[in-house]
Write a protein that binds this DNA or RNA. Structure first.
Lengths: 203, 203, 203, 203
DNA sequence: TATGAATGAGGCTTCATTCAT
DNA sequence: GATGAATGAAGCCTCATTCAT
């Protein structure tokens, strides 16, 4: 039984891995179930014993990744250190996670959006569905409020506007990095920008 | 002859318009050539007299829009006014252009990316392919340099980092707006953020 | 154009004929679209240019046959002759029609029912859906009423009960005949039974 | 051992019952072995320890029901009472049996036919395969012969033709009832028709 | 005997593209 | 240039059955 369970897990993992690889290589819609199973060394039908649908895979991927990132963030936030430092560390942490698998990140990022739009318009609720910003922005906002209270940040700053601006910077860097072919460091890239925001550009 | 040419242009335009409408409504891959031609009142075969391929349409769309935006921007830049004001106006201008056809903007933005990835990896050259940032960022950079020279902006600011940050803010607002269902004004949204950047958040 | 139209009709007919033949031979569900098109000498896709779905064929068959039978019946009813004679002729007429293509009749009869049950229960309206009895029974009823008026039939007979009984006899003979392998004449078979009903079996 | 046997019987019965329920609900071909076993709380493989094939189930159903009805009929026939009365009682008896499970009756009636045609033509032997008429008609024939001998029925009646006519009436009522959604009494329905046959409709 | 993961043939349908008219 | 019927590769998914545990 345990052996059987183990084999099952193995197969599931193999499907995951192979799918990830193929999706990265050729995109989601251009990868056929046939290819996946062939590559995974299983029968075509077997695929559907594990995932009810080809599309289902994407959601599993997405789900998995989001959960991971969420955990990462909450863990990071509860430390104590200067706000700016914690902010930087947070960005770097998430960045490093994406950096571990750039190709898959790309895929999930772009493909998932398309699927959502293809099926039935835009899901209600969040403005930025797709990079779970609600959580992220709120977290940034809290952090900034802390900063305002302890004098690290100007009193007149609206923490929500600032949080969104930080998110903009982070998100833009992520996008740029995901699009780029040259392997520059994502985490380094945002530092200068965050710095800039802290100081301001106006005379 | 001129009449013939005219009719040809008409057909071409009708295909364009109908495609745009359908793509907006159902996405690119879920729109069939058959639907397009039926809606356009032409035969299926005729489509291929105008566009070698269904995918070709997207590139024509993209091209057309980018050219338009590029012209818009260059025109705007050559005015004389305070840098900050010109900056804002520029953002607003482009925003207004997108606002004229939100749905199509969405489509081009997300679908185009997917197709590029699907066909064969990422095209070499630009880092940010998809929102033609090279041009935009360079323009912002020039503007900022002007600002530095005439004292509107601090000397110590790296104009390129600042340009990218501005682009980040602009881009993020655009993304958020494209994703949102609620019809808030895109142009208003970036103002606070740009303001924030000018002042900075740090104490 | 006329040539094109003609070819189209030909293809349509060929699909019809080949389908009929294969359905007869192997039943509906055991005949694949692939077989049909192969036998018809067309590409698989072509089938779907003519019929949106494999199931659609059955309904076209059914429709066609019912229309034909309906016309047959109405034409027959308007003659003048003794009621019993007209009755017999009517049965024979329809019987002969079915006899022209026993196998297809079988198929339509049994398969159609099954499909209706499979999809969504029983369609509302008629009790005997599948052999369009409403029309038939009503026609019989009219005929019997005539017979009652002109003294061919007893005054105490309820024409509706009698009509249904006649239909029962007809229908049962049809069923029996459709099921049998031995090629006895369907039309002959009902004569004795109708005779019996006219005379009655009780002492 | 007896316990083991008992459990086996239980499983067999459970498969039967669950299958019956599902077949009724969704038809034979639209019910998967998987659903059956899941509903029955057994493993998929176990099914095939009890029935060599999914189709086999239908034949077991059919067999079982026919045996039951046959017993019912033979018991009924051997009573002594006027022929007409015994005839009516017989019909009512069988009708009541079907009425106990209308849905399953429907299923067996229509599905079984289809399968026979699907597999390989029509089985040799009986003309009316599907409602085991041989036995039934013979029984009716015997009864009618009795009636002729004891003067209840006219001497000139051909008992076989009459038996088949009775069967027609019975069968037609059954069909109509199986098709109808309204819950009228099957047994009541045939009475008027049988009465009519006894008296005859002719003047 | 029970289990349920694996199998893989086979089904239906879609649709971009071609080409004879 | 326009037409639209024909094409056929390709895709996704189903499910009865087998078999190692």
């Amino acid at each position: 039984m345990s052996l059987r369970e183990k084999k099952k897990q193995e197969t599931r993992t193999r499907i995951f891995d192979v799918s990830a690889a193929l999706f990265k290589e050729k995109g989601f819609e251009n990868t056929t179930v046939d290819e996946i199973t062939k590559e995974a060394g299983i029968a075509k039908g077997t695929f559907f014993n594990y995932f009810p649908t080809k599309e289902a895979l994407l959601f599993y991927f997405k789900e998995q990744k989001e959960e991971f990132v969420r955990d990462l963030m909450t863990g990071q936030m509860s430390l104590n250190a200067p706000v700016k430092e914690r902010l930087m560390d947070l960005f770097v942490l998430v960045a490093e996670h994406y950096e571990k698998d750039k190709e898959l990140s790309r895929l999930l990022f772009f493909e998932h959006k398309r699927l959502i739009m293809a099926s039935g318009k835009i899901p209600s609720g969040s403005r930025h569905e797709g990079h779970s910003p609600g959580h992220f922005v709120n977290m940034l906002c809290s952090l900034l409020q802390e900063g305002i209270q302890n004098g690290e940040i100007r009193q007149t700053v609206d923490p929500m506007v600032a949080a969104k601006t930080l998110h903009a910077i982070y998100f833009h860097s992520l996008m740029g990095w995901l699009h780029s072919n040259t392997d520059y460091s994502f985490s380094n890239d945002i530092s200068a920008k965050v710095d800039l925001l802290f100081t301001g550009i106006g005379e």
